[in-house]
Amino acid sequence: MVGVWARLPRATPRRVLAAVLLCGLVPWSVQLFSASTIPFLRFVWGGLSFTPVIYARTLPEYLALSGSPLLVPWVVAAACWLLAVASASLALVDREDPRVTAGLLVLAGAVNASVALRFGIQPSRTGYPVGTLALWAVAAWRYRAWTRQ
């Protein structure tokens, strides 16, 4: 395991910010319905459906159209990620506390995992928390770099 950490790039402020921003481009969960093999991708900004045509809907649209109990944790995870972006941005002016950035990413990942898992326990549905892995990996990289300073 030590070899893996040694090969990772140094956590410069720009790299940290780029890594945190990239977490927003990864699908946070891949959701499948048993009647279809075509996934629904849930991102921090909204969702992307491929049936019957490719259709994107933003998170605010979901909030306006649906009363799903999964929307509140989705918003909380998105807010934690946005705060992590703000925290990582502070590194550019030497004001970041890496523990805050890493902690917010861990929280975003945990809440995202709860959304994917709660979706997956519904009948005929499966949810894979892909974004959680990305968020936690960046959090671990950021925190590990801070502890090595």
Rank of each mutant, 00 (worst) to 15 (best):
M1T: 11
G3A: 12
V4R: 10
W5A: 08
A6W: 08
L8I: 06
P9M: 12
P9V: 02
A11H: 07
A11E: 02
T12C: 05
T12E: 14
R15M: 03
R15A: 08
A19I: 00
V20I: 05
V20G: 03
L22P: 04
C23A: 11
G24I: 00
V26P: 07
P27Q: 06
W28P: 00
S29T: 08
V30T: 11
Q31A: 08
Q31T: 04
S34E: 10
T37C: 03
I38G: 00
P39S: 07
P39R: 11
L41H: 09
L41E: 10
R42L: 14
V44M: 10
W45F: 11
G46V: 10
G47N: 06
F50T: 10
T51P: 02
V53H: 13
V53M: 08
V53S: 09
V53C: 06
I54C: 09
I54A: 15
T58M: 14
P60L: 15
P60G: 10
Y62K: 05
L63M: 14
L65S: 10
S66M: 07
S66D: 13
P69I: 01
P69N: 09
L70S: 06
L71T: 05
V72F: 12
V72P: 03
V72R: 13
P73T: 01
P73Q: 04
W74P: 00
V76W: 04
V76S: 03
W81N: 03
A84R: 04
V85T: 09
A88R: 00
S89R: 05
A91M: 01
V93W: 10
V93I: 15
R95P: 04
R95V: 02
P98N: 02
R99D: 05
R99W: 14
V100G: 07
T101R: 00
T101I: 09
L105W: 06
V106N: 02
V106D: 07
L107F: 14
A108L: 05
A108W: 02
A108V: 04
G109H: 00
G109S: 05
G109I: 00
A110T: 07
A110E: 01
V111W: 05
V111T: 06
A113Q: 00
A113W: 01
A116N: 02
L117S: 00
I121D: 12
Q122T: 07
Q122R: 15
Q122Y: 11
P123M: 01
P123E: 11
S124A: 15
Y128M: 11
Y128K: 06
P129W: 05
L133N: 04
L133P: 03
L133D: 06
A134S: 13
L135H: 12
A137S: 14
A140D: 14
W141S: 12
R142F: 06
Y143Q: 12
R144A: 08
R144P: 02
A145S: 15
T147Q: 13
T147S: 12
